[in-house]
């Protein structure tokens, strides 16, 4: 096998999600001469991003204080109505606000597509000189002789199922960095290898996860109120924990989804079917009827929070 080509950078970032893009932008803001590259496995930035989302602007405010005036699509729909429903088989009642104070009120938040927000962040990053390579997956971690992280290798292209090389075969490249940042999001494939190696999990509880399944609908304008966000609990889930969300976003669309925590015990449970059943509840159906589903997807969520944040720093990496 021929030597792989290699490219040196100051900083290598794996993943163009909000974490990776924010890191890249911040580095370039503080130190414009630092070379930064981002690898993204999706065909373009945003192609693999799936979220709700109701976004607390704290992060954007800190990173790009005038984001609202810079065309960030998240500014389109400020949250102005926040409801929390408990569903029974046929009915619903609202969870009184005083039980979910301050912290959960979504005050000052925005609702929109996180994928589009990432596309906008990527534009800001590129304007600052960050190189972004969409369509390149980081497949392996490279280590220095002393065991520290040296960078990553991008996946080979054009390998057949049986391992043979197809005519369009292209060997992966080594991307070297003084520091490598793994921002793969929940359950990263490389991050998973790093955890045991650097004992990142040693002092914390096992991470627990949920699966979030999401659909995007164009709904009947009569049923749409931009900025209304609804969370629901209760029906139809009885064998698992979780709940639904329904966010009225810009352009007459609602983003709706259902989260099932993956600590469920009955193997006959189907998060997908729970979601489909949830939509048939009279209160949800009322909103969707006459509308059209335009997109679908799913992504794991990490609900572990504080007890599961592994040790963050390890040699050569974040």
């Amino acid at each position: 096998m021929s030597e792989r080509e290699s490219m040196p950078y100051d900083v290598v970032i794996v993943g163009a999600g909000p974490a990776g893009l924010s890191a890249a932008i911040r580095i370039k803001q503080k130190s414009p001469d630092t070379s930064v590259v981002i690898l993204e496995k999706g065909s373009e930035v945003g192609a693999h991003i799936l979220s709700g989302a109701v976004v607390d602007p704290k992060g954007l405010d800190e990173l790009i204080p005038d984001w609202r005036d810079q065309g960030c699509p998240m500014a389109e729909a400020p949250v102005n109505d926040n409801q929390h429903w408990i569903l029974t088989k046929k009915g619903k009642y609202n969870l009184p606000h005083f039980l979910t104070p301050g912290f959960m009120h979504n005050k000052g938040t925005y609702t929109g597509s996180l994928g589009n927000m990432c596309r906008w962040l990527a534009q800001q990053a590129e304007n600052l000189g960050v190189e972004i390579f969409p369509g390149f997956a980081a497949a392996e971690i490279l280590y220095n002789d002393d065991g520290s992280v040296k960078g990553v290798v991008t996946g080979d292209m054009g390998v057949a199922k049986d391992g043979s090389h197809k005519p369009d075969y292209m060997q992966g490249m080594e991307i070297h960095g003084k520091y490598t940042l793994f921002a793969e999001g929940v359950r990263g494939h490389l991050t998973k290898q790093l955890k045991p190696k650097f004992a990142l999990d040693a002092d914390c509880q096992p991470q627990v996860y949920g699966i979030g399944i999401k659909e995007l609908w164009d709904i009947n304008p009569e049923n749409h109120t931009t900025g209304r966000v609804i969370h629901s609990q209760g029906w139809p889930l009885s064998d698992a924990n979780g709940g639904g969300f329904l966010y009225h976003q810009a352009n007459g669309q609602v983003a709706l989804g259902f989260v099932v925590w993956l600590n469920y015990s009955n193997p006959f449970l189907s998060p997908f079917e729970e979601m489909q059943r949830w939509k048939t509840h009279p209160e949800i159906r009322k909103i969707l009827e006459g509308g059209k589903r335009v997109s679908y997807g799913a992504r794991a969520i990490s609900d572990g929070g504080f007890q599961s944040v592994p040790k963050l720093a390890f040699p050569g990496v974040h």
């Binding site: 900083v11 999600g17 909000p18 974490a19 990776g20 893009l21 924010s22 890191a23 890249a24 932008i25 911040r26 580095i27 503080k30 130190s31 630092t34 979220s51 709700g52 989302a53 109701v54 976004v55 607390d56 602007p57 704290k58 992060g59 954007l60 800190e62 990173l63 912290f103 959960m104 979504n106 996180l114 520091y179 940042l181 921002a183 999001g185 969370h231 709940g243 969300f245 989260v259 969520i301 990490s302 609900d303 929070g305 963050l312 720093a313 974040h318």
Partner: peptide, 22 residues
Amino acid sequence: MPRIKGTHTAMKSGMLAADAIV
């Protein structure tokens, strides 16, 4: 769902890593 919610915390952790790297 509680407002742990991730996007802003993901951004903040990215920025903290950036600060340390710089």
